[in-house]
Design a protein around this nucleic acid. Sequence first.
DNA 1: CAATAACTGAACCAAATGGTTCAGTATATA
DNA 2: TATATACTGAACCATTTGGTTCAGTTATTG
Lengths: 120, 120
Amino acid sequence: MVQYIDTSLDAKFAALSDATRRGVLERLFQGEASISDLAERFHMTLTGMKKHVSVLEQAGLVASEKVGRVRTCRLGPGTLEAEMEWMAQYHALWTARFKALDRVIADLKSKEQGNEQEND
Amino acid sequence: MVQYIDTSLDAKFAALSDATRRGVLERLFQGEASISDLAERFHMTLTGMKKHVSVLEQAGLVASEKVGRVRTCRLGPGTLEAEMEWMAQYHALWTARFKALDRVIADLKSKEQGNEQEND
DNA sequence: CAATAACTGAACCAAATGGTTCAGTATATA
DNA sequence: TATATACTGAACCATTTGGTTCAGTTATTG
C-alpha cells in the first residue's frame, strides 16, 4: 500500500531534480568520465562539478575512484527501483481516476442521447 | 535517444523530492482535501501547507479551487509520464551494464575452471 | 628538479527552500 | 451583527543549493 512519508526517496529524487546532474548520468551511460571531462562538457568549474558528482554519489547513483591525480566517475550501485515503483503507483491511480471520469462522461453522453435538449 | 539537458523535468522531480509533498499526493489519491485538512495531517501551519500545494500546482500535479472560504485540492492534470520514461531508460541501461558485467564475470569463471590456480 | 595538470577544501555569495508569525480579507455561523 | 473559520500575503529566518574564487596538495611530464 501507499506509504505515509518515506524519506528514503528524497535523495534520489532530489539528485534527479537538477538538469546538470541528469546530464552527468546520461554522459556516464556512455562510459566513464573524469571530473575534468564532466566539468568541461557542462561548462562549469572543477569544484562545481565535483559537488554535483558528490550529490550523485550520496544518492548512490554514481561511484568514483581516484587513481593518480584523476578521479574517474561511473554509474554507481544505486537503482531507481523504489522511485519507479512510487511513480508507477501514482500513474496507475491517476489513470484509474481518469478512467472513472471517462465512464462518468460516457454515462452523461448516453443520457444526453436519450433526451436531446438542455444544453447551452 | 537520451537527451542532453532537458529542463522540463526539473519541476516535477523537485516536487517529488520532498516527503511532505509526496505525502500530500498520496493523501489526494484517496480524494479531495482542503488546505486545513492537509495542514493538520502533516503538522504544519496553513501557510506552510499552502506553499507545498503551490509547488505541486506549479508542477501540474495538483489542482485546487476555492469555493466559499475553503480551497479544495485534488490531483492535477500533470502526469509523470516523461519522468517515468527517463527513469525507465536509466533502468534499462543500468541493467544492461550489469548484464554485461555478469557476462564478464561468467567468462572469468569459466576460464578459472579451465586452469584451477592463481587465486588469493 | 621545474612546471603543469587534476583535483580538493575552505570561504564566500546570491538565490531558493521550508518553515514560521502576524496582520489582514472573506465567508459562515450563532 | 459579532464571532469564529479558512485562507492569504508579506515579512522574516535558518538552511540548503548551485555556483564561484583562491590557495593548497598530489601526480605527471619535460
